[in-house]
Amino acid sequence: MTTAGLLPCQRPLFEVPQGVSYLDAAAWTPLPIAVRRAGEAGILAKARPWEHCRADFPAWTERARAGAAHLIGASADDIAIVGSVSHAMATAAAHLAPEPGSRILRVADEFPSLCLPFDRLAGDRGLTVDVVPRPGDGDWTAALLAAIHRPGAAPVSVATLTPSHWTDGAAIDLDRLVPALRTAGAALVIDATQAVGAMPVEIARWQPDYLAFPTYKWTLGPYGVAFLYVAPWRRDGRPLEEHGGNRPSASGARRFDRGELHDPVSLAMAATGLELVGGWGSAAIQARLRALTEQLSERCAALGIAVSEPPRRVGHVLGLRAAGGLPPDLVERLSARRVFVSERSGALRISPHVWADEDDIEHCAQALRDCLSDRSG
């Protein structure tokens, strides 16, 4: 599959030079030039506050909120602006009150922010944390369905899930899981960090109780900004931070907004990145990235590297594994060849975004071939 006819490569909008194959969007992304300039303008406003009207800053906040809402098919009133996904998950855990003796369901090797607050919740309320082990066939969805319906098990009261496993892009099909969870009466908390901006995410399809994502990965923004979707039936709780802007009279999910909200630097950057991604469209981004990861998957198969095939993986992340494991210094050796990727839980995680093109994929494949040949020789 080629990228012909798909969303064009957006490299001119970034400062990624030719010869650098930066394929680590799942870790963090370079800033588009427009996002960097938005941040610089915000810094100037803080540096020379007498030249800038503070009353202008909330407009950036609401642009960011609207941009986040657009990407998940929600309204601005559904979105709280928080400082991180861990902030969002702590908020969700603080407002859930599952029945003692029930289960919290999650997958193995999950990211800490999706574990720790719910482990605390389990301890406080006498719950069992049911951790589904990594399936040998790579089918997380089937393994989770089996866990939900396991005979004799306590009922599932909370499921903390993601659309794909963060370590290697293995797909977790929420479309198939949600009906079973709703039948069980479980609350659904989604960490969409590795999804929003790279693949379609629709609140109407999944109807989660909570869904969160940050801006520093796929939505091309800064650190320190994240968004929390809060379902209408979950908006009566007390926020983690209380301030003048999130009193009980605050509209919708704004009840859970962070303090020091109207940051002229980070919110301007976040809004600019979200609007870029929203303009391209998540479906178009996913199609382009899938073409690139499929191109690399074909090259890796010839090198004897195991790669999950769709639909067992999402289109924007490729997790590479090899019998006996990959060389422990492979990330560093690739970096020396100007190929930038990550290792996560024994998988080489490769994650292009819209600045990447076919030449980057070929550069990566050649570097992998060279590094593995050097080790075998």
Rank of each mutant, 00 (worst) to 15 (best):
C115F: 02
A231N: 13
R299H: 12
L7S: 06
R255D: 14
V354C: 14
A356P: 01
G152V: 00
L177G: 07
A55R: 11
G152A: 07
V341G: 06
A231V: 01
D257A: 11
D209H: 08
A154L: 08
T29M: 11
R238A: 14
L188W: 00
D360Y: 07
F340H: 07
V189I: 13
A301Y: 05
A90L: 06
G304E: 08
G325Q: 02
R54S: 12
A347R: 04
Y223V: 13
A74D: 05
V230I: 10
V339I: 10
G278A: 09
P155I: 00
D357L: 07
P200F: 06
C364S: 11
E99W: 02
L23M: 05
H165F: 01
L181E: 12
D130W: 10
Q194V: 02
G304C: 06
V354M: 13
S164C: 12
G123L: 13
P133F: 01
I148M: 09
L6W: 07
E62P: 00
A92N: 07
H316N: 01
D374N: 08
R238I: 08
L296C: 14
A226R: 08
A204M: 05
I79V: 12
G19H: 06
C115K: 11
V20Q: 03
V132N: 07
A69Y: 03
V339Y: 01
V317Q: 06
Y216K: 11
S266M: 05
P32V: 02
